[in-house]
Structures are given as C-alpha cells and as structure tokens.
Measured scan of single mutants.
Amino acid sequence: CAFTHRPCSHPRLEGQEFCIKHILEDKNAPFKQCSYISTKNGKRCPNAAPKPEKKDGVSFCAEH
C-alpha cells in the first residue's frame, strides 16, 4: 500500500496504489466513502465503497 503517513502492510487493491483501508486517499480511485449512517450515533461509516454509476447514488462498503 502506498499510504505515506505511516507504513501499511495491507495488500494493494488490484490496479490501485492503495489497500481498501486507504483507497480514499486516491481521489481518482473508483471508490467513495460508504453511505451508511449509524442510527445509534448519527456518524457516517468511514470505510470505502465502490463509486455508484450515478453521481448522486448511494454505495455501501462490504460491512453494510
């Protein structure tokens, strides 16, 4: 993984420079932040999710 703030030993995603944990660092990657919002604390999930086809579409990470 090419994350520069600290060493990361996670494997890169195929065709990308970053792992799934750090892929949002790459603005050109086909990922965006997960659209899930917790009902308990109102916070948005920080994980990466595939970018949807539509610009305003929602997309969820593997956990959600």
Rank of each mutant, 00 (worst) to 15 (best):
C1M: 01
C1K: 07
A2H: 04
A2R: 08
F3L: 03
F3H: 14
F3D: 04
F3S: 08
F3Q: 04
T4Y: 07
H5D: 09
H5K: 11
R6Y: 12
R6C: 14
R6G: 12
P7K: 09
P7S: 08
C8L: 00
S9P: 06
H10V: 07
H10M: 13
P11V: 05
R12V: 12
R12D: 00
L13G: 02
L13N: 01
L13P: 00
E14M: 14
G15N: 08
Q16L: 13
Q16V: 02
Q16F: 08
Q16P: 00
E17N: 14
F18N: 01
F18S: 01
C19P: 00
C19F: 00
C19E: 00
C19I: 00
I20M: 14
I20F: 09
I20C: 08
K21E: 11
K21I: 04
H22N: 00
H22Q: 02
H22G: 00
H22E: 01
I23S: 07
L24N: 03
L24H: 05
E25A: 08
E25G: 12
D26L: 06
K27C: 06
K27T: 07
K27I: 11
N28D: 04
N28P: 05
N28F: 11
N28H: 14
N28R: 13
A29L: 05
A29G: 09
P30S: 08
F31V: 04
F31W: 09
F31P: 06
F31Q: 12
K32M: 12
Q33K: 13
Q33F: 05
Q33W: 03
Q33P: 14
Q33A: 15
Q33I: 09
Q33M: 12
Q33T: 15
Q33N: 10
C34Q: 02
C34H: 02
C34P: 03
C34N: 03
C34G: 03
C34T: 01
S35T: 10
S35F: 15
Y36E: 06
Y36M: 05
Y36R: 13
I37V: 13
S38Q: 11
T39H: 11
T39S: 09
T39K: 11
K40R: 01
K40D: 08
K40A: 01
N41P: 08
N41D: 08
N41Q: 10
N41Y: 03
G42I: 05
G42Y: 11
G42H: 08
G42E: 15
K43I: 06
K43W: 08
K43G: 08
R44C: 14
C45F: 01
C45I: 01
P46G: 14
P46D: 07
N47G: 11
N47F: 15
A48I: 05
A49Y: 04
A49S: 13
A49V: 15
A49P: 05
K51A: 14
K51Q: 05
K51D: 13
P52E: 12
D56H: 13
G57R: 02
V58S: 11
V58I: 13
S59N: 06
S59K: 05
C61G: 02
C61P: 02
A62Q: 13
A62R: 14
E63D: 15
E63C: 10
E63M: 07
H64Q: 02
H64K: 02
